[in-house]
Design a protein around this nucleic acid. Structure first.
Lengths: 216, 216
DNA sequence: TAGATTGTTAATCGATTAACAATC
DNA sequence: TAGATTGTTAATCGATTAACAATC
């Protein structure tokens, strides 16, 4: 059973949000056959302070060795455990438009051992093929999720459709929602939701542009 | 000429990152014909404190009226100005695969008056059609960006291709990069980059799942 | 004027950095 | 043992919240 140390230990959200990036950099070190690294080097690579890196990691346990540094593979595996990305989750995509196709084709599913086991939509899109799956009608979503022990629901519907589906999503026997729709889904509070708001990131880019040196 | 108040005024990144969401909520109020709102109501809608809302806004100026609240349209326009999303930017997509198609079809371009003026890729994809644009070869990217005064480069190439393209991107006459590739582009430091790292958000979702009540 | 609500100051809380004792 | 580097404590810095005077 996967352990939840982070909530138990009361880790700040700021720390959690840095873990995926640490994990990615460690993965690249591994790919380059680098088996040992110290906080100063890794911090420099990543553009953070060594202090912050050590402080962050030490919240979860003692993963390094004084006088030596960190074993890359060991640290990589610990962060994997903390993030819970090695649990062989099963996912379903709801929304078979361009975003649905894009997510289905994203290598991250394979890379993180997440098994895509169905694609749903309604209307004309039912019967189309997305990443080898025949698009099924949303009306069958509940039964499918129960029968196939679906963990993650990926929402790639347009904003309004997604918002309208919220009450149904709330009742689904799933563990979490990966929401690309831009809608603020009002689900039952105990269902973890990760929003990926494309629009917000565009606004942030616009702001970076306007506040960059070019404009001063 | 668009003014950059935020860098000048030294606004914390945390505040900036909340503006897009404020903006979206105000947009919805407008659509619902609500012309006036006070900080307590808006804060409640958004799940933040009224104090934070007022504190955040007051960094940029006095947008409210004591005893009255905020005029929704006025506040909406001010945030639009601060974010610089009303500058009629011109964008080009590099990468005509599924992600490229998905972004090209995303309503956010239309919604934020960003004009897509070209799609680029290499190999077999050259000559295909994406959102009404014939995919051109990346070799013509520089000349196209110069001739068409492209502001925003949207990168939807696979990670490795994007990383390989970084030196070329650095030299392009553009204002900012919206990067969906998952690569950490090492561009010249004065080019604003907004990364949208899908993989990281999946890891965050996994962590939320593992640390949710279901596992305790 | 009385009531409402902002903008802002001050207090609290949290996160980051610096420094160093512990220890490999 | 001497050198290196962690884990952790303490100091600094920054962000959030609470409170209230200003003012519509």
């Amino acid at each position: 059973m996967p352990q939840n140390d982070s909530k138990k230990l009361n880790i700040p959200q700021a720390v959690i949000s840095r873990l995926p990036r640490y994990y990615r950099f460690l993965g690249e070190l591994l790919r380059d056959d680098i088996f040992r690294i110290n906080s100063a080097e890794l911090a420099k690579m990543m553009g953070v302070t060594a202090s912050q890196l050590r402080q962050d990691l030490s919240r979860f346990g003692e993963f390094g060795l004084r006088g030596y540094g960190y074993n890359v593979k060991y640290l990589y595996d610990r962060i994997s455990e903390i993030l819970g990305i090695t649990n062989n989750y099963r996912a379903v995509i709801v929304g078979a438009g361009d975003s649905g196709n894009a997510i289905a084709a994203n290598p991250v599913f394979m890379k993180r051992s997440i098994r895509l086991c169905g694609v749903f939509d309604s209307g004309d899109r039912v019967g189309m093929t997305v990443a080898g799956h025949t698009v099924a009608d949303i009306s069958g979503l509940f039964d499918f999720c129960s029968a196939n022990e679906v963990d993650i629901l990926v929402i790639t519907l347009p904003k309004n459709d997604a918002a309208a589906l919220a009450p149904i999503i709330s009742e689904l026997p799933i563990k979490g929602v990966w929401n690309f729709s831009g809608a603020e889904l009002n689900l039952k509070p105990d269902i973890p939701v990760q929003n990926v708001d494309i629009e917000d990131t565009l606004m942030m880019l616009c702001h970076k542009i306007v506040s960059s040196d070019q404009y001063r």
